[in-house]
Design a binder for these strands. Structure first.
Lengths: 350, 350
DNA sequence: CTGAAAGCGCTAACAT
DNA sequence: ATGTTAGCGCTTTCAG
């Protein structure tokens, strides 16, 4: 069948690619009888378009089933509205509050979260960061301090807004929100002294920050004259599971049956300690005081309810999102730093 | 200081934007004295470049500190290597295994995960999907069946590979991997009958799939002549927390003190039931049989260890990643469908 | 095996 | 208030 007088398909030029077949801005523009620029304005700065045009263009958008290509938009504008978050592990409950707050704060303003899993191992950190950087995120949120010097330099060089969280340090890459793990260790040691316990111990995962808390805890205990030199410690691979914590504590108890207080590196570990202790007929808190870390959602509902160190993960997530979006939109002054502290929540396990 | 004879900055042309100042392919190409094309080949198809050139270009890449812009690459190639995952909530433990498996399988082949949180509410589903689609992902993984008809049509129209997980249905959008929630309900009902329990109940979150399990459970119980008509049920907002489950079960027990078996919509709920029951002096399993759902990592280490329905979340995540990457690379035949089933794991709580 | 040209879909900059 | 032009940084296509 011969085609009508109009030529719907342009005569194929020498080489070059033809479009992907998707509906583009140009299609919408044609339909609404405006320029692509106007359609773009309707999408990005609707207040700069008069109501009549606005309505017409929006109708055209709907008619075409147009979905904007933000990849192309990002390339053209230099803003991806993508934010990368790096967590040691997705399945650990510790950073979930932070992640959730981050994700929600971002989604509310049209940003999208990319998730990267680094493991507790430093080896792949650089590789992973480079992968994320190649996606041109408007910001990167790290749930720890960047370890590798090369990675730190790389990050500084690119100039992406970076927020390090869940820790404090003297020389952050860029922005920093967290608390002092040493201070936690000290405060828990003093708390145990106040309880009158004499033979404290620790059950911990092998991640670096738990190590920081342990060291500070041990030092302050020694200063207070508690324990006998070496702090009895059961260590297991992070992230600790209920079963791993139970097993670790069981072994610890076999070696040191006279322990009367345990500081745990996470609430999950504390839960394991409580479970194991109870199964051996130990009374908590009478025979054994148990202190967790994180104040995860289950801590207050455990039997007995768990004394723990409350960390405001939500605040960190929200603040990180805020800082990054401010920077992306050119509002923020400079590097920022915030110590959000922590709270020792006293419950029935001590 | 006057500049030397060469002109490092080209004279600014009329309008137009100048580069972003970042190192680009062209910079690397200049330094290695090859075309941009060759650099691109080194990055994407190194086997098509002779070793000598390869080495020279790679050196140039290192010297410049070049980080490829995959946003630009995605635009040019039509492949973003971005995969979107939609979960009801980040903080729920149920989908974590799936997410983690997905993330790892993707990362291993250079793909990146984008995370979207839909809530258990259907209202924002379309909005959220459209947001994700505008990022041009190479695939979308959903941890449930798409509810809204409009969203289903939209997804089908775009042609993005879609994997629906954690459920089965007659008419999937595209690919499907999951199990039958009805079958779970039936099997648990029969199991309870075999245990000889006469007064079963349910503690459940208010999400649709838990509802499916409950309905099937209730129907089969009735068929088996168990219970007295209405199935005693405590329902609370999903995702259930330890505390919410405790409270819900406490209320249920007040109304129905003679309950002798409880099927819970998640292991967390079961944990709450166990905790509340024990705090009231009930013996498990003697006085009360408790059955969970999910076989989360803590289930086997609870006291008593928890009988539960094991779901292989890792398999779903890995398979979803595989299917999507295969499709993105043009390998896969067509829509696919897989029932991965489930296993009733019998432990000490029954 | 290597390069030149064209263009992916969009937005910034300049014009009107 | 709206249109025109020139790219963003990369890959595809085609030619040597």
């Amino acid at each position: 069948m011969p085609s009508p007088s109009t030529t719907p398909t342009p005569p194929p030029t020498r080489k070059a690619r033809r479009g992907t077949g998707r509906v583009t801005l140009a299609d919408v523009a044609k339909r609404a009888e405006v320029s692509t620029q106007t359609v773009s304005r309707v999408l990005n700065t609707p207040q700069s378009v008069p109501p009549a045009t606005l309505a017409r263009v929006r109708q055209a958008i709907r008619d075409c089933g147009y979905v904007p290509d933000r990849l192309a938009g990002a390339l053209a504008s230099g803003r991806s509205r993508l934010v990368a978050a790096l967590v040691p592990t997705i399945s650990g409950p510790v950073f979930q509050e932070t992640l959730q707050a981050l994700s929600q704060a971002l989604a509310g303003r049209g940003y999208q979260l990319m998730l990267g899993e680094s493991g507790y191992d430093d080896a792949d950190e650089e590789q992973l960061l480079e992968n994320l950087l190649s996606r041109r995120p408007d910001g990167i949120v790290l749930t720890r301090i960047v370890q590798s010097a090369a990675a730190r330099e790389r990050l500084k060089a690119t100039g992406v807004p970076v927020v390090e969280t869940w820790d404090l340090c003297a020389d952050p890459v860029d922005m920093l929100i967290g608390f002092s793990h040493q201070a936690v260790g000290h405060e828990v040691a003093e708390f145990i002294a106040r309880l009158g316990r004499r033979r404290p111990a620790m059950v911990t995962g092998d991640d670096p920050r738990a190590g920081l808390r342990r060291a500070a805890f041990a030092t302050r205990l020694a200063a207070l004259g508690l324990g006998q030199g070496q702090l009895p410690t059961a260590s297991a691979k992070a992230p600790l599971t209920l079963g791993a914590a139970r097993a670790a504590f069981a072994a610890l108890l076999d070696d040191h049956p006279d322990i009367d207080a345990v500081f745990c590196s996470t609430d999950v570990a504390a839960w394991g300690v409580v479970t194991e202790a109870q199964s051996r007929g130990l009374k908590i808190p009478q025979d054994l005081a148990v202190i967790g870390f994180g104040d995860l959602s289950f801590a207050k509902d455990l039997r007995p309810s768990l004394t723990t160190v409350r960390i405001n993960g939500t605040a960190m997530g929200e603040q990180a999102a805020q800082w990054i979006m401010d920077r992306a939109e050119g509002l923020a002054p400079a590097a920022r730093r915030l110590d959000i502290g922590f709270t020792l929540v006293q419950r029935d396990s001590t």
